[in-house]
């Protein structure tokens, strides 16, 4: 499959993208990943730890060379035109930290200087951005004195203050408390309205809340891609029942049973779900029943070893 790209393309396209880390033990982080998504709104890539999310982001953001395959962003060849692409992208990597001996203003200012802005313009944009993100009062405090959420905001402010059209955020909310995370979502939604945001996370509710499109990566393979509705349609069931450990598994005629460490999950139809719930209620067993969520879709696609998207 050969990708033909023009500078008018507003897509991110990967063709048979593979990354093998060589070393004492060779490991395949990405396995022939192919997809094409429009480069607007927010794209959220979900997957377990080690599924290849960070590897994919690092390749797209020109930090890492793929072993094979082709990647294009808005018609720019990521492998061979990395300098051209770097003019248009910005990233906050996983585990990035605001330097503790600097202030938010200094952090944003210096990043803009690295992007080649003049000192005056960089300073103006830095203060303007920090003000818009509610960090104006902390602009001259040391980063080490800020809360965890504000430290993350400082990092996002660096890329937001830049002229980049495409922003990569690798697990930006990991480690934040639930309230800070939700505050952060408002910020990310705003960013996504104006610039294409490629976000990775292992919080499924985050993907559900933010993603205009969602990709599911499992063991280096893309097993799901689409809007939340499109992903729901792939599962074929509309209800999810969660049974605690020890609850006897009822007879399921139409559905999918997924065994997990915390119990059993039954994905099934509405009719079957109510039949099972009546049976379990008679036995006095505890269970939950809910419309299918991204969490269920993720378990379904990942545990089923679904066929890779795009191949």
């Amino acid at each position: 499959m050969v990708a033909e790209q023009t500078s008018n393309d507003q897509t991110i396209s990967c063709v048979e993208l593979t990354k093998i880390y060589s070393g004492k033990r060779e490991s395949k982080a990405l396995d022939s990943v192919s997809f094409s998504i429009p480069s607007n709104g927010i794209f959220v890539l979900i997957g377990r730890n080690g599924s290849g999310k960070t590897t994919l982001v690092r390749i797209l953001s020109t930090e890492l060379e793929p072993t094979s395959g082709e990647v294009f962003i808005n018609g720019i060849d990521v492998k061979n035109e990395s300098d051209k692409l770097r003019e248009r992208i910005a990233i906050v990597p996983q585990e990035a930290r605001a330097i503790p001996w600097m202030t938010p203003a200094q952090t944003v200012l210096s990043y803009l200087l690295w992007r080649g802005f003049s000192y005056g313009e960089a300073k103006r944009r830095a203060l303007e951005t920090l003000g818009k993100l509610g960090l104006g009062r902390h602009a001259n405090s040391l980063n080490r004195t800020l809360s965890g959420g504000n430290k993350r905001k400082v990092l996002v402010a660096t890329v937001l203050a830049s002229e980049a059209e495409i922003i990569f955020l690798d697990e930006p909310t990991t480690g934040l408390d639930p309230i800070s995370r939700r505050e952060f979502w408002s910020l990310l939604k705003e960013i996504g309205q104006r610039r294409f945001t490629f976000l990775t996370t292992h919080y499924l509710e985050e993907a559900e809340e933010l993603g205009d499109r969602i990709g599911v990566l499992d063991r280096g393979r893309l097993v799901g891609l689409g809007t939340l509705d499109e992903l729901r349609q792939r599962v074929n069931y509309n209800y999810s029942m969660k049974l605690s450990r020890g609850v006897p598994l009822p007879h399921v005629t139409r559905g999918e049973v997924v065994e997990g460490r915390d119990g059993t999950r039954v994905l099934t139809t509405e009719e079957e779900a109510f039949a099972i719930s009546r049976e379990l209620s008679r036995g006095g067993y505890k269970f939950t029943i809910n419309p299918i969520s991204l969490d269920d879709i993720f378990f379904y696609l990942a545990n089923r070893g679904a066929d890779q998207v795009g191949n």
Binding site: R58, E63, D83, I89, A90, I99, R115, G116
Partner: peptide
């Protein structure tokens, strides 16, 4: 700066 703050990664993915 590279390993503890990931600063170099941010700079690599920029026009620097």
């Amino acid at each position: 700066l590279k390993n503890d703050f990931k600063l170099q990664d941010m700079v690599v993915s920029s026009p620097t």
